[in-house]
Each structure stands twice: as C-alpha cells, then as structure tokens.
Design a protein around this nucleic acid. Sequence first.
DNA 1: AAGCAAAATTTGTCTGGACAAATCCACCGC
DNA 2: GCGGTGGATTTGTCCAGACAAATTTTGCTT
Lengths: 248, 248
Amino acid sequence: MTLHTDARTPRYAAILRRLRAEIAEGVHPVGASLPSEAALCRRFEVSRFTVREALRRLQQDGMVERVQGAGSRVLRATPGTVFVQDYRSVGELTRYAAETRLVLLDTGEITLDADLAGRIGGIGGEVWFLLRGLRHTAEGGPLALVESYVPLRFAAIAPDLARGAGPIYAGLARASGDTIARVEQETQALPAPYHVAEALELTPGAPALRILRRYSGQAGPLIASFNWHHGGDRYIHRTRIELDRDQT
Amino acid sequence: MTLHTDARTPRYAAILRRLRAEIAEGVHPVGASLPSEAALCRRFEVSRFTVREALRRLQQDGMVERVQGAGSRVLRATPGTVFVQDYRSVGELTRYAAETRLVLLDTGEITLDADLAGRIGGIGGEVWFLLRGLRHTAEGGPLALVESYVPLRFAAIAPDLARGAGPIYAGLARASGDTIARVEQETQALPAPYHVAEALELTPGAPALRILRRYSGQAGPLIASFNWHHGGDRYIHRTRIELDRDQT
DNA sequence: AAGCAAAATTTGTCTGGACAAATCCACCGC
DNA sequence: GCGGTGGATTTGTCCAGACAAATTTTGCTT
C-alpha cells in the first residue's frame, strides 16, 4: 500500500492519521494489539524509523501502550480532547504522598474496610481485589471516598499495607521488588452514586469529582483507585502551568 | 568526554541526566540556547540519534523548546513541585490553539456574543470585560462553553481578537507588549447552571466540569476564562505522570 | 544605513542495518 | 497436568549517512 501524501506532510503524519482513523473506526478495537512495527513497515512501505515516529505519537496521545517484547496495545479509541500532563520527580512524589499521609494520621480518622474482599471485574477487564477507605479532614468532615483495586496476587498483604505506614503503592512496589514506573490520572465529573453520596454526605446524584489514579511498576499494574470527592464548594482540584520564557 | 554508564542504562539516559543537571546548575540558564545537536554529538561521542533521544525527552519535560533552524532553548530549570504542565511546548501550544481554531472555523459554528459587554466583578474582586463563546466538535455537538474575562483596558480590542486568527491570550500579550508568564488552572465539578446546561444540551443541575484558566503576563493578568464541559461520558480531563527509569 | 540575496547553521525527516532486551509460545520431559 | 527451556517474535537502543526545511548570519548592492 502506498501512501497518499503531498510533498508537505511528512510520511509518519500520514501513517498517524491512518492509524488514528482505523482505531476510531474499530479496525483495531480497544484492548487489541496493533500490527507489529515490521508489519506496518511492509504495509506502508517505509522504514522502521517512520513507523516508530507515528507509534510514538499515538503513545503520547495516550491511545496506545507499547511494551517491549509484547507489542502495541490500543488503550483508548480517541485522544483526550484536552491532554494535560503532570510531572513530578519520584522524590517529590514520595514527599507529596508522605505529606498527605501525615495529614491523615493527624486526624486519626481513617476508616478502612479492608476486610471487605471482593472479586470485582474492575478496570480493564481484569479481576482485582477491592479495598475501600474513607478520608476525613481535620475538622472531621469526609474528604474523600477511596476505592482501591489491587491485583489478586497482592490480596493477602494489601489490607496490612493499608493499615500500615506509608503509601500503599510504595508498599506494593517494595513487596514485589518492583519500582514505580508510571502514574496515570483521569478526572471526571459524575453524579454521585448512592454509596458515595452516603459516605461524603451528599445527596445522591449531586456532582462529584471522580479521580482515577493508576500506579504501575515495570512489571505491571500495582494499584488503581477511584477517589471520590465533593463536587466544588469544599474541594478544588488544582493544577498550575508556569512558563518561564517570553513568548512573542 | 566519555560517558560513565554501566551496561544497563541507555546512553541517552546518561546524557539526559547530565543535561538536566547542567540546566539545574545554571550552566545553561533559562532563556539561553543549548549547544547544537552536532556539538553534543562531538562532546558525548555518540551519534545524532542518541543526542536527539535525550533532547526529545527534555522537550517532553517542558524544560527545552526546539525550533527547526534556530536550535534548542532552555525554558525552565526544573520541574516544579506540584506543577502540572501542558505537555506541549509553548510553540506547540500556539499551534494547538491554531488547530482548534481551524476545526472551529471548519464547522462554522462559533457563536461569539462579543458585543455583550458586561462590567462584572468577576474573579478576584476586579472588574472584567466578559466574552462568551461556544465550541462545537467536528460532529456538531457542543463541546464547551467558554466565558472569558478580560481586563477593562482590553475591552475595545478583545472582541476583534476573539473573531480574528490566533488565540486571544497571544493577541492580548502582543497588544500590550507583554509576554505570557504564567498559566493557572483549576478544575471543579459543579451542577450545571441554567445557561450552561442550555448551551451544552444538558439538564440543569447535571454534573458539569468547570475549568478556570488564567493567563498572566509579566505586568499582570491578561485573560481568565471558565470552560464548561460535559461532566463525564463525553469528556475526560486526563493527566499523566511518567517517571524516568534512570531514577532509583 | 538599509534592503536583499546567498551562504552557513540547525533541526526535521528518512533509509538501512545491527544487536540487545523483554515477552510470548510451543515443545519437551516429568 | 505441570513446569521449565529454548526459540521466535517484538520493541528498545544505537550507528552512519543523506537530504529537506527553517532560521540565522553574512556579504553585497544600492
């Protein structure tokens, strides 16, 4: 197959457009693997460099995940309309988590129904172990409902980690001899489900902020959790972009 | 200069670490240009591919901007503590805005009640000039309601800027001889107010995502805008943290 | 001094090739 | 059936080279 591209647009851009369209149309459904780099090279009659450039951009859009030895897998059918990236170094991330932890310990009001064991087809079609917890503010009001999904192999130790010191993801990484490789986060505004409304003292259906956070190690997922928050008046999810350079 | 790298870490990672350290130490101050790719190749005794891989990651961090023909310029010395950064560089940000603009023009469905002049004690107790706009997707559905607040001194030119080409904040910066210094963003989930629900085809009170974005120049605020979005099913606000593997 | 055109510089795109590292899978032995 | 082993597959890293495209600099002309 030859590429239809005028002299202006680079070849990888044409391939990128083609692949994006195919993913959107369901030729490569979410969860399926893309053809290998070699196959794409043959199909588009370009070098591996060009194919990789296109795949790299798909990956940057969050549409595709690439694993050495395994291949490229479709994560989502469309790029996020607004795509914001959050950067923290590992040291800072740990410190951040530690600070959060401190606040929680300060109030001494964490509830953890860790013994509630479920086998729930949670996220990504996989079977996970569910932990449920509640976070309170210093004033005693509910701050967040946390629903954490842990791979089944951690089912035995997860409750202890949840009750122990330090963030859970760090404990899981330690226990499996892994290191944190990736943290992803998705924010949505949804009507509060009944059990969330009850926990956060909202009326069911009121706007709630749901933040999905996924921690992955080199070996695979460590933990994924939904954090349910008050919609607006009591909680603000805040980000900041700082540009240090002059723009013309 | 030879690289000190054990067999495990790739060479580009070592170069990346070195450059990051030098930028942090001020060897390459913010605003200055990095050595050219060719120079870095000679210095580290690697091929251009390897240098480019390191530079590409610096660019992804938002620390460096790369312009064809001009070189690589240092944008910021370190990743901030809790800063969330749009992963596009400033150059790409402009282009992104331009692309959005194109899409909008394509559908021909932008509504701009720019002549609706209000003196509204908007944000921060100051008096602002209000612009209102609606963004449609390619499929024709409403994507976002935009309410922009502009300082009164820009009241005369703002409507023209909104109708003209290019992002408004860039036009304002140009008009005032200023440069963008900071962009802040806050996300909240709120019950959709009536006028928002009407615009986005929601039922009033349904969960909506409100993103407040503030652009500031060196001299002061340039523009602040509320972006109202669908709550969840059609719009996902997504962030991602990717940790480099060369950190322990 | 100002304007314009050519040259030099610098990053972008692309080829072809090579080996390493991670993963997957079929086969074998128990 | 189970576990391990080895080969095949697939992506990651790296090189040397080439031309294109954008920008900056230089030098010439007016």
